[in-house]
Design a protein around this nucleic acid. Structure first.
Ligand SMILES: [Mn+2]
Ligand SMILES: [Mn+2]
Ligand SMILES: [Zn+2]
Ligand SMILES: [Zn+2]
Lengths: 141, 141
DNA sequence: AACGAAATTGATATTCATTATCAATATGAG
DNA sequence: CTCATATTGATAATGAATATCAATTTCGTT
């Protein structure tokens, strides 16, 4: 698959080594479409590799972020989550404060206006996080 | 001052007590226009009240957030910051990844589009955080 | 295929921010 | 003023994330 090739390339370019653990973690993670807690991913990986170390999962996620194959998300529940980057497509999030539901959205107008704001401030924009909090259709009743 | 009255009213309405420590912390904090780390605020308060406890600063900030007189900010440096809410005016932030500079901005169009996004998803919006990361005019060179 | 320098792993210790605990003290309604 | 209740501040506990390090693995080079 393409993204796994990207990861192999990334490792090679950085002089890092391809290992069974890294490859398993990356392979599993990149195929999913979830917002993983480190613990969630650790528990998944442990099913096929009971020996996997917690630290290795942390380290591999860090590499994936550096390789731009994952992004870190901080919603306001205190937990850090990671999600795979699919097709380089950016999106932002709506978070339900009751059930924790995560909805993704893309809005080009907002993205454009953000660029404009940055330009006005003479800022060189690298990335952004836009998170909307509230209650989902089911929870607002 | 108005906001301090608000805090007194909040305490009273919640059946909480007004104390020298709370009042000093709130009074100092609400007069400033900064994004305080708990430690930063603690150190400031300690100047006039060397006996102040760290936990009391945490607790008071939590109260101020609940009273909607402060908001919590998470920029990506791992530290939680608090800023006083002035005149109920909402704003978002630009963060310089090099020098840590924090620039505030208001953009009604973005706010409107966010409401629209929420409406499309049948979400009842309560608040949002929009943070733009990059390099400020001085740091981008 | 074997070697060996360098990177990686996983168990564990450590750090650091935040929360919980609790005895002593302060507050404020009646 | 009294007293039930809330608060304080010192400290312990928690929990996520990082650092450490000996043992193991990888991979470019022989
Ligand atoms: Mn997402
Ligand atoms: Mn601000
Ligand atoms: Zn919900
Ligand atoms: Zn800067």
């Amino acid at each position: 698959m393409n993204k796994e090739k990207n990861f192999q390339g990334y490792l090679h370019d950085k002089g890092l080594k391809s290992t069974r653990q890294r490859d398993d973690i990356a392979s599993y993670f990149l195929q999913q479409d979830k917002h993983f807690t480190v613990e969630e991913l650790y528990n998944e990986i442990k099913k096929s590799d009971p020996q996997i170390g917690y630290a290795t999962v942390y380290r591999t996620l860090k590499l994936l972020v550096d390789a731009e194959l994952a992004v870190e998300c901080q919603f306001s529940d205190g937990l850090t989550r990671f999600e795979p980057v699919h097709k380089g497509k950016h999106h932002d999030h709506l978070i339900c404060l009751k059930c924790g539901k995560i909805i993704e959205f893309e809005n080009d107008k907002i993205e454009q206006l953000q660029l404009e704001v940055a330009r006005e401030q003479n800022f060189e924009l690298t990335n952004h996080k836009c998170v909307l909090y509230g209650y989902c259709s089911r929870c607002k009743e």
